[in-house]
Every structure is written in structure tokens, then in C-alpha cells.
Simulated assay, not measured.
Amino acid sequence: MAPPQISPSILSADFARLAEDVERIADSADWVHVDVMDNHFVPNLTLGLPVVEALLRHSALPLDCHLMIEDPDRWAPAYAEAGAGSVTIHAEAAKAPIRTLRAIRAAGARAALGINPATPVEPYEDLLGEIDMLLLMTVEPGFGGQRFLDVVLPKVRRARQLIKDRDLPVWLQVDGGVSEETIERCAEAGADVFVAGSAVYGADDPGEAVRKLRGQAEGAASR
């Protein structure tokens, strides 16, 4: 497992002040998590490529772009080409995942595969060699501020075992309801990258919130 990393989701930030809100976590976070939603794959509409391109000009942190969209095979490579550090496509939406994941890597970004809560991880075991990160949703995708789904924790453990069995340097990310109350359970189950939205941007000091979450994850991972 890699040392714990925190990727605050700007879905919970102030969209009118994104550059400022990203700056508030610049000294403590590892990534900026950007939720791209198209109101088709998920029932919400958020940010797209133009906003990502603008953020890249203002963020010292790498962007972790999570594409919750239809037809990621068409759109994902452009996010990598724009300069995103990591691009996640969803297994449920991709029709040619291997080709798309390789295109993301070829464009210079880390390639990641996302899986919804009800989607089993085992059918995608053979794709682990094609990815740099596996994202397990711990809420139903589409909205921030949802309650963490403990039912996903056994899947996190299974995913970590699959990665370990293949001796792959694949990060395991969890996204949804990650907070001071849930991050230790996620780390104990084997996650090493944590997306936190409300827990960071709902705090008076987002940077300090990130530091606290990292400390909890490090403590749980070392147990």
C-alpha cells in the first residue's frame, strides 16, 4: 500500500471561488478531486473540461479528474491531454476501457477505473494491470454530502487483496461520505487514497481538516 493520500473534492467547494478554495488546501492535500458529471450517467451537472483547464492554470496541486459521464471513451483522453494528473473512467460507462485507459496513460496521466457500489470488483480483475488506481464509490455517484455505505467495505478488502495477489502498484481510492467518522474504517480495509468533500470544505479550516484526516488514515493503516 502507498502512504495515505487525501484528495479533497471541490464538489463541496464554492464554485464562484474555486481558485481560492483550492488554494486553501494547497499546503496539506495531495490532489484536487474534480467531479465531472454530465446529467446523463449521473443525475447532476457539474464541471467540464474548460473549468479543468482554468483550474490547471491556478492549482499547484495535481488534478484528480473523476469522469461520471456517458461515453468516457470519447472524452477522457482530452482531460489527460489538458494536464490532469489522474483521470478516472467508470466501468459501467466505458465501452472500450482498455483502449481508453491506455490513451489516458499515453497522454501522460495516471489511469483509473471507477466502480459503483453495486458493481462487483471481480469482473475487472484482469484490468488491474492497465490502471494506476482503482476507485470504489462508497456512495451512489451524483451528489456530494451523502451518507457513507458500509456495505462497500468488504469490497474494499477484496480489491486490496486482488491488488496484493498480483503485486501491482495500484492505488485504491474511496469516494463518498469519507469523514473523521469513516476514514479509519476505509484505511483499515485497504484504501490508500481518500476523497473527502464535505468533511474538508464544510470545516472552518479546510487545510487543517485535511491534516486531521491524513493523521487518522496513517494511524489506521499502521495498526
Rank of each mutant, 00 (worst) to 15 (best):
P3Y: 03
P4E: 05
P4Y: 07
Q5H: 14
Q5P: 14
Q5T: 15
S7D: 04
I10C: 05
I10G: 08
A13Q: 01
A13P: 00
D14Y: 03
D14Q: 06
E20M: 07
D21N: 14
V22H: 04
V22Q: 02
V22A: 02
V22M: 07
E23A: 12
I25S: 03
I25F: 06
A29F: 03
A29Y: 00
V32Q: 09
M37E: 14
M37Y: 11
N39W: 15
H40Y: 15
F41D: 02
V42S: 01
V42N: 00
V42G: 01
P43Q: 06
P43C: 07
N44P: 10
L45C: 04
G48C: 07
L49S: 00
V51P: 02
V52C: 09
R57L: 14
S59E: 09
A60D: 14
L61Q: 02
P62T: 14
C65Y: 06
C65S: 10
M68W: 03
I69Y: 00
E70T: 12
D73A: 04
D73I: 01
R74A: 14
A76E: 08
A80H: 13
A82M: 10
S86T: 15
V87Q: 04
T88Q: 00
T88K: 00
H90D: 06
A93D: 07
A96S: 15
I98D: 13
L101Q: 05
R105W: 05
A107Q: 10
R110Q: 06
A111L: 06
A111R: 06
A112G: 10
T119I: 09
P120T: 08
P123D: 13
E125R: 15
L128M: 04
E130M: 11
I131A: 14
D132P: 14
D132K: 15
L134N: 00
L135I: 06
T138H: 12
P141W: 04
G144Y: 08
G144M: 03
G145E: 11
Q146N: 00
F148E: 09
V152R: 10
L153C: 02
R157H: 13
R158C: 11
Q161Y: 10
Q161L: 12
K164H: 14
D165H: 10
P169I: 13
P169T: 12
W171K: 05
W171F: 08
L172F: 07
L172R: 10
Q173Y: 10
V178T: 12
S179W: 01
T182N: 04
I183A: 00
I183W: 02
I183C: 00
E184I: 00
R185A: 15
C186P: 03
C186T: 04
C186I: 09
C186K: 00
A187L: 09
A187W: 09
E188H: 13
D192T: 08
V193M: 11
V193F: 11
F194A: 05
A196R: 02
A199H: 04
D205S: 09
P206F: 05
E208I: 12
E208P: 08
A209W: 11
A209N: 13
V210R: 02
R211N: 10
R214W: 09
A221I: 02
S222G: 08
